[in-house]
């Protein structure tokens, strides 16, 4: 019996665009245990959303195409399922919430109906049963006077409330896996904290796994037990949360950690210092022969430009895609 809930192996998703083939996801892999929260972090455009969407078969196609890999959910390869098989899993076993609560709800349908829909398709509940359960869930995600708001439309709710509706909608069928694609990015800070604690509460209540996508390491630190760092369509480092914060190996991970605004900075009365990682992400269309991060890496040396590094084992459960593992003496003292 495989203890893993979700395993992604060597997944490649390419976009066939007029200007060339963009390798948005290029051979990534990671897995997720039941009940675990995994953080997937990386800069904008590194392929986090595309990874998440491929799990549910929602990558826009054309231009997108899943070129290779396997996505095993409870030992079943989701990439092999037909449309109907995949549909039965969506919203029932695997749910997803999105970044933009403003545009992710249908503007012309009442929220009660939108929350009730998964119950009607997956659990074959009648309309009134589903509505009653939807009301209970809206109440559970702390929407005030939930029962009276079933007939409200999304435009009558604030951003935070809409994200609560999205969460209720994702939870109604008690999924085994929740994919949360930047669930708090569009919200302001106080609302962010509320949504995160709501997600923590629901997670322990339903004992579900969460794939939490974000570029905010602070959010990951609060929620996740393990982290996968992506860069330009690849996994560059993965490991336990604590290890990654205490002893990050990959220069990119180190850069990300340094670019986090620190609480201490603000307390000392200074403006928070944001150490940007210099340079920009390489184009996904041009072929890169060496390490993808070479152009921005402070430790870069000749091997990096010639050959792509593998994911080397660093420690227990920690791996990094960096030649410094082989050539430790090339690491320059950090500035």
């Amino acid at each position: 019996m495989d203890p893993k809930l979700l395993t992604i192996e060597a997944l490649s998703v390419h976009f066939h665009l007029p200007e060339g083939v963009a390798r948005a996801v290029d051979g990534i892999g990671f897995d997720l245990q039941p009940g675990e929260t995994l953080g997937l972090v990386g800069e904008s455009g590194c392929g986090k959303s595309v990874t998440a969407l491929s799990i549910l078969g929602l990558v826009q196609s054309p231009p997108g195409r899943i070129e290779a890999g396997r996505i095993l959910f409870e030992s079943r390869n989701l990439l092999r399922l037909d449309a109907e098989g995949l549909r039965r899993i969506r919203g029932r076993d695997i749910s997803m919430i999105f970044q933009e609560p403003m545009t992710s709800l249908n503007p012309v349908l009442p929220i009660g109906r939108q929350v009730a829909e998964p119950l009607m398709v997956h659990k074959a509940l009648s309309r009134s049963e589903a509505m009653a359960e939807a009301a209970a869930w809206l109440d559970h995600v702390k929407i005030p006077a939930a029962r009276k708001r079933l007939d409200d439309y999304p435009h009558q709710l604030s951003g935070g409330m809409r994200q609560r509706v999205m969460i209720a909608m994702a939870m109604v069928c008690r999924p085994k896996l929740l994919i949360a694609d930047e669930p708090t990015t569009a919200l302001d800070v106080t609302i962010q904290a509320q949504i995160l604690s709501l997600m923590l509460m629901l997670k322990s209540e339903l004992n579900m796994s969460v794939l939490l996508i974000t570029h905010d390491l602070g959010v990951v630190a609060q929620m996740a037990s393990r982290v996968v760092v992506m860069y330009a369509g690849q996994v560059v480092e993965e490991g336990r949360m604590t290890d990654m914060f205490d002893q990050p190996f990959h220069p990119y991970t180190r850069g990300l950690l340094k670019s986090m605004p620190r609480l201490g900075d603000r307390r000392a009365g200074r403006p928070p210092r944001l150490n940007e990682i210099p340079g920009t992400v390489p184009s996904l269309i041009e072929a890169v022969s060496g390490c993808r991060f070479a152009g921005r890496c402070p430790h870069v040396f000749d091997v990096c430009r010639k050959q792509q590094p593998d994911l080397f084992k660093i420690g227990a459960g920690q791996r990094a895609r960096c030649w410094l593992k082989r050539y430790p003496d090339r690491r320059k003292p950090d500035a």
Partner: peptide, 22 residues
């Protein structure tokens, strides 16, 4: 190509419901 259509699909609705209902 709107986000809410993607949401509707992510819920596991039948394609018919997605197109005609949403």
């Amino acid at each position: 190509s709107e986000d809410y259509v993607r949401t509707a699909r992510a819920k596991g609705l039948k394609e018919r419901t997605v197109v005609y209902g949403h």
